[in-house]
Amino acid sequence: MSASTHTISLLIENQSGSLSRVAGLFSSRGYNISSLTVAETDDPSVARMTIVTSGDDDILEQIVKQLNKLIDVIKVIDFIEDLIIERELLLIRIDSTKSSRHEIIELANLFKAGIASVSPTSVTLEFMGTKQQVDDLITMLKPHGIKETVRSGAVAVAKARK
């Protein structure tokens, strides 16, 4: 069985300590976390976590079960790859000179990325897309010299049933 990337979404009691229970579970049992995002939901007593993890089917099954076992966890949704809408936010600052700025802006337009800020020596872009699109944009920008990259980690929601 090969390791695959997986997105898990969970609803958890919005209390101090909840995040460390989840993070502690992953570290103590040796599971990977590629990214983890957490924020309050429309119900302020509940927080939503989106965790991107990897492992083979057996490990993923255990991760879901162990998460469910945490007393504070209300619900675990194990997303199936092609049935989700997944987005990640990227803020990226790139070196730029007068001559290269145009090229960067062109790339930004191509990706439908926004220009968050411009200075005489740099351009900061903002971009939202799938993990793959974020990766692609970073690859394209690399030759210009990346000063700083900030990725939010993925958030995901299930597609509406037709």
């Binding site: 057996d58 099954e61 255990q62 079960k65 162990q66 469910n68 076992k69």
Partner: peptide
């Protein structure tokens, strides 16, 4: 009683 024990 513990689902996490099953197939661990």
């Amino acid at each position: 009683i513990d689902p996490a024990s099953v197939s661990k």
